[in-house]
């Protein structure tokens, strides 16, 4: 194992974030997500969840403190470099409306490969081409029926849409997956099924997973559970 591979997926030290001169929205002393770890971050709305995800995703700049992703001092990179880093290393999964209605099923899945040659290369190495890798992932996520008919993505059920979105997050095996309440629009049955598929694929990729949800009942699926309210000391100082 090389040195960088031992570095944690996410390492946060003394990170604070505030919009100009306001009281901090977020203040985290120490947080770590180990490589390959699947973490359940419990955070009700208003707990600074969006801010944390935008910082980790590289959309917001880190102004004070340290944010390291896989050993690279991510928070200090320029906006452009952070965007490219996100394209290369992070798969993002939203609550809903993850898909572009004007792209086909396959095109939606391979979208990250268009923005990142690294992920395109990884997908090609695995299956021969990004399209073939998309096929493989969609099959693994039990969407083989859809592959035959290839309906417009808007006609898929929400559960199916979330699985396509999961395939998009997973393609090219990014080191980190950020999932923001991806199951909140699903009913109980689809939810467990979706979670199982996501977690097993994620494990197979050797990716780390930061899964954010307010729904405590999902926590037993994960390696570790952290409550955002506990680690966020804003206003405490």
């Amino acid at each position: 194992m090389t040195d960088t591979e031992l570095k944690p997926a996410i390492l946060i030290k003394q990170l604070t974030f505030a919009w100009k001169r306001q009281t901090p929205l977020l203040s985290i002393n120490h947080f770590i997500l180990a490589r390959g770890e699947q973490l359940f971050l419990q955070g009700p709305s208003g707990s600074g969840k969006s801010t944390l995800l935008n910082l980790i995703g590289g959309v917001l700049p880190v102004k004070s403190g340290e944010l390291t992703l896989h050993g690279s001092n991510f928070g200090k990179l320029s906006q452009r470099r952070r965007d490219q880093f996100r394209a290369d290393h992070i798969g993002v999964l939203f609550q809903q409306f993850n898909l572009l209605p004007y792209l086909s099923l396959i095109d939606n899945v391979i979208l990250p490969c268009r923005f990142s040659s690294k992920r395109a290369a990884a997908a090609t190495q695995r299956s021969g081409s990004p399209e073939k890798e998309a096929h493989r992932l969609l099959q693994r996520l039990q969407l083989q029926e859809m592959l035959k008919d290839s309906p417009p993505v808007a006609e898929l059920s929400i559960g199916q849409q979330q699985r396509v979105a999961a395939a998009r997050a997973l393609i090219g095996a990014p080191e980190l997956i950020i999932a923001d309440e991806p199951t909140s629009a699903l009913d109980a049955d689809t939810r467990d099924n979706f979670l199982d598929l996501l977690l097993s694929e994620n494990r197979e990729n050797n990716s780390s997973l930061l899964f954010v949800s307010h729904d405590q009942s999902l926590s037993h699926h994960f390696d570790r559970v952290v409550s955002l309210n506990e680690i966020n000391q804003r206003g405490a100082a």
């Binding site: 995703g57 906006q79 452009r80 965007d83 290369d88 939203f94 409306f97 993850n98 209605p101 923005f115």
Partner: peptide, 13 residues
């Protein structure tokens, strides 16, 4: 939402 998706997969502002 469309723009957020593009942003998520790596499109810069």
């Amino acid at each position: 939402r469309e723009l957020a998706v593009l942003r998520a997969v790596g499109a810069g502002p």
